[in-house]
Design a binder for these strands. Structure first.
Length: 715
DNA sequence: CCATAATTCTTTTTT
DNA sequence: AGAATTATGG
């Protein structure tokens, strides 16, 4: 059969094992997407109906790519197959059963911003100090609980600390607020289907019959809720194929449990396990580097990933003097590649945190090199887009208090805090939404405008309607009148949003506003709609998972940044950072560039970080060091960096016997506990007043302390 | 109520 | 450093 052409023995075995559970342990670059797509094509060639297939991927991008590849293989559109992320799939189930789940037809999805707004409001209502109880921390705790399938009722039976008691109190209110607003959060998209299936065996059976063949990608990154959902669906036919690699588990912070992959065989009796160990992506040098890093993880099953693609180029390493110097280096290298006719779309810059993208954007822009940022601060979180979306959501769902409060005075209509607080009082008194509480004043004018839009929304196309909303609301006029460059950009973004709506309409046929809104909430990346083929990609390492590039730059390899300082306290988290590094390296097909900076500007001040341990874990003979040897004078300061340890050693500089701290050292503080030194601020005049910046565990965070403080000691 | 000034975060990673 | 939130005075 020709769809099996170009597959190796193990891959073919994985494709052909149709009946019963199958676990594919697929090392990086071993062709797992190929296996998944071919497997689906194979199922169809055997006569399995496309709508009996459910394939779950990790990102929308991966889902799109898979659909495309399958269409090519089977020769017809893949739109009859359910290929999506867990969350999109969950949304589909919720949409089909909203009534039973207790929601109104026009429910909306609240994003992270919206949920944060709700949590802040709850804290305020309960007179809880947000300084003491960080709303973000509460949000992430609630999210974690939800993904562990612990609702507030269950949580109340736990023994709780003071903070957790507050979380519980907020959690209870949060649950009821979401329902009151006729809204779901992201986590509900996983939880509600589970709830549905547990309560309604008849419906579960129906879905089990519908999805007889289940494929799950990136199984190592499934959390408890996703695991449960999968298990419920697969429990009847057990035709489940999970693909994953424990070395690439990088979502532990979100509750993912890579042990799901280790437990597969005990979860599914008679499971077949197939290992894919030949890497078809990277040169031997790159693979050796990846292996030499990952082997430092103690909690790991060793495996034997190999490549037959030849030695390839050495890995280039550059230690810059500053963050800007690092940018300059990377930009110059990219220019060189471009001159050698390398397509920009084959180049990616990878970083640990989104905040790092900015300097690279700047540098590329100045150099006139086109680039695109994948993920990050996304399109939909821009103010003008959020405002427009809030209008659209309120039009669909008048219970949405969050959206109403956001836009009732945007543009300015002279409706202020007092009016809103009156509305809240009224809404509590009569137990109605803010919207329904409106009955007079300027706010009634607003309400009438929304009512008018409501009544005509179904008489025209999506794009026409959005245009109308922009006009009637005054959003467009406000920006046009502003006549600033910034306002022009915002207007452009609104146009861009319209074209997103247009392509959505074109792709899906006629769609309702409700449908559009639900789908928009799950799109995190505008690039899903726009392919830019001649641009360097910039993204976090988390975002690059599953992708590959010829030329890969991994930047910011410094202790404290990568591995991130928040991860340096626990062995577990540190190992996750190392897996992240493994993922970064294994994206590369041809040439890998690693870099860092001796010093960089962060939070508006200079930070000095030592070389990342991951660099030191790579076999030195795989690296080609392009760092400049630096010995220079600047403002009477002699800096000698040509030192292998490169740690600032205060003792050697000042001959102070008591002081012997280095960046990266672990210290113990009587109040804050264990911490890591992230920066040493030397006091030239009075060495006794040298300050240490130390990262302590939350809730303490980064503290600046005088080194000689009596409660501080080295460990 | 709103414009401006002052202050206080922000940075881990995401569907 | 820059954004975002809050305080102040008109």
């Amino acid at each position: 059969m020709d769809i099996l052409e170009n597959l190796n023995k193990e891959q073919i075995e994985a494709v052909k094992h149709i009946d019963g559970p199958l676990l594919v342990l697929a090392g990086a670059g071993s062709g797992k997407t190929k296996v998944l797509t071919t497997r689906i094509a194979y199922l169809i060639s055997l006569g399995v109906s496309p709508d009996n297939i459910l394939a779950i991927t990790f990102t929308n991008k991966a889902a799109g790519e898979m659909k495309e590849r399958i269409s090519k293989l089977v020769g017809f559109s893949s739109k009859f197959m359910q290929i999506s992320t867990f969350h999109s799939f969950g949304l589909k189930i919720v949409k089909e059963n909203y009534e039973y789940l207790g929601y109104d037809k026009n429910f909306v999805i609240f994003d992270a911003d919206d949920t944060l707004t709700i949590i802040k409001k709850i804290l305020k209502d309960k007179n809880l100090d947000p300084e003491k109880f960080n709303p973000r921390a509460i949000r992430s705790q609630i999210s974690k609980l939800k993904n562990d399938l612990i609702d507030s009722k269950k949580y109340s039976s736990f023994s709780l600390t003071e903070f957790e008691k507050v979380v519980l109190e907020v959690y209870k209110k949060y649950e009821s607020e979401l329902i009151k607003n006729n809204s779901l959060d992201f986590d509900d998209l996983l939880i509600l289907p589970i709830k549905l299936f547990e309560q309604r065996k008849d419906l579960l059976l129906m879905y089990q019959e519908r999805y007889k063949y289940i494929l799950i990608d990136e199984y190592q990154d499934t959390n408890e809720a996703q695991y449960k959902l999968t298990k419920l669906l697969a429990s009847k036919y057990k035709n489940i194929c999970c693909v994953g690699d424990a070395d690439q588990a990088i979502y532990g912070f979100r509750g993912a449990n890579y042990k799901n992959i280790l437990n597969f065989e005990s979860d599914y009796k008679n499971a077949l396990v197939i290992k894919l160990e030949e890497n078809y992506r990277s040169s031997k040098t790159i693979l050796d580097a990846a292996n030499s890093v990952i082997k430092n993880n103690k909690n790991r099953k060793s495996k034997n990933l190999y490549s037959n693609l030849g030695i390839g180029d050495k890995i280039t390493y550059y230690r810059a003097n500053s963050g800007l110097d690092e940018v300059k280096y990377v930009v110059n290298k990219i220019k060189e590649l471009k001159d050698n006719l390398v397509s920009l779309s084959d180049i990616v810059i990878l970083y640990r945190t989104n905040a790092q993208s900015r300097v690279f954007e700047d540098g590329l822009m100045k150099a006139g090199i086109p680039y695109k940022i994948v993920g990050g601060l996304n399109f939909y979180s821009r103010m003008e887009i959020k405002n427009l979306l809030a209008y659209l959501r309120l039009i669909c769902n008048s219970n949405d208090n969050v959206s109403l409060e956001r836009i009732i005075n945007v543009p300015r209509r002279g409706i202020g805090t007092k009016t809103i607080s009156n509305l809240y009082d009224k809404s509590y008194l009569f137990n109605v939404s803010l919207y329904d509480a409106i009955d007079s004043g300027k706010e009634l004018v607003f309400k009438n405008m929304i009512e008018e839009l409501k009544s005509i929304k179904d008489t025209m196309s999506l794009v026409e309607f959005i245009d109308l909303v922009l006009d009637k609301s005054g959003l467009r006029k406000e920006l046009v009148d502003e006549k600033t460059l910034e306002a022009d950009i915002r207007l452009e973004n609104l146009e861009e949003f319209k074209s997103v709506a247009k392509s959505f309409e074109d792709e899906m046929g006629v769609v309702s506003l409700d449908d559009f809104l639900l789908n928009v909430s799950l799109i995190t990346d505008n690039n899903d709609f726009k392919e830019d083929n001649n641009a360097v990609s910039l993204m976090t390492i988390h975002a690059v998972k599953g992708l590959e590039f010829d030329y890969v730059f991994v930047v910011g390899l410094e202790e404290g940044l990568f591995p991130h300082q928040n991860s340096m306290f626990s062995e577990e988290e540190l190992e996750e950072e190392r897996r992240l590094c493994y993922v970064a390296i294994t994206r590369c097909k041809k040439k890998l560039y690693l870099s860092n900076a001796r010093m960089r500007l962060m939070y508006g001040s200079e930070q000095v970080y030592p070389i990342s341990r991951f660099i030191n874990e790579i076999d030195a003979n795989l690296l080609e060091n392009e760092s400049k040897v630096v010995k220079y004078d600047e403002k009477n300061k002699k800096i000698d960096y040509n030192d292998s340890s490169e740690k600032i050693d205060v003792k050697s500089k000042y001959g102070d016997d008591e002081m012997n701290y280095k960046v990266g050292d672990l210290v113990y503080h009587e109040v804050f506990g264990m911490g890591t030194i992230t920066n040493i601020i030397l006091n030239e005049k009075d060495p006794k007043k040298t300050l240490l910046k130390i990262a302590f565990k939350l809730p303490y965070g980064i503290k600046t302390l005088i080194y000689s403080h009596k409660s501080l000691r080295k460990v």
